[in-house]
Simulated assay, not measured.
Amino acid sequence: MNFLCLSTLAILCRLASSAEWCYQTQVTCSNHSCIGPDDWATVAAACGNNKQSPINIVTNKASTDSRLTPVQFTDYQERLNAVIVNNGHTVQINLPDRAKINGANLGSTYKAQQLHLHWGKNGGPGSEHTIDGEKFPMELHVVHIKEEYNSLEQAVGDSSGVAVLGFFYEESENANKNYDAIINSLTNITHPESNAELGAISLDMLIPNEDLDKYFRYEGSLTTPGCAEAVVWTIFEKTIPLSKEQLSAFSNLTFSDGAAMVNTFRPIQLRFDRPVYYSRSYIFHVSTILLVSSVFTSLCVLTV
Rank of each mutant, 00 (worst) to 15 (best):
V276N: 14
S160K: 14
S66G: 02
T239R: 13
S221N: 05
Y218D: 06
A259R: 15
T130V: 04
V295I: 15
F73L: 08
F265I: 00
S221Q: 11
H129C: 02
L4N: 11
P241A: 09
V83K: 15
R271W: 01
V286D: 03
S279M: 07
Y179D: 03
G103K: 01
N31Y: 14
Y110G: 00
T69D: 05
N176S: 12
K244A: 13
V301N: 03
H129D: 05
L165Y: 06
I283F: 02
E197K: 10
A175N: 15
V164L: 12
S298T: 09
A228S: 15
Q24I: 01
Y169W: 02
G161Q: 04
S281T: 09
E170Q: 13
R79N: 09
N263F: 02
R217Q: 06
D180E: 14
C227K: 05
T25C: 13
S185D: 12
G107E: 01
Q26F: 04
N263W: 00
L115F: 13
G199A: 04
R271Q: 14
L206S: 08
L203A: 01
R79T: 05
C5V: 13
Q246I: 03
P137S: 01
T190M: 04
V85R: 13
A44W: 06
A19V: 03
G258Q: 10
L299W: 11
Q113C: 14
Y169M: 02
V43I: 15
M1P: 06
H118E: 06
P70T: 02
I268G: 11
G258H: 12
R14L: 14
G258W: 15
V276W: 00
S293C: 11
H285R: 02
Y76A: 11
H144A: 03
L9D: 04
D211Q: 12
A19R: 10
I283R: 12
L9Q: 13
T254G: 02
F265R: 05
L186N: 12
S66F: 07
S159D: 15
D39W: 13
S243Q: 11
N122F: 13
I201L: 15
V43W: 14
R67F: 02
K100G: 00
R274L: 04
T187M: 08
G226S: 07
I182C: 05
F236A: 11
T25K: 09
A10M: 09
T288F: 13
N94T: 08
S281N: 12
F265W: 07
P192K: 03
G258T: 10
T187Y: 02
R14N: 10
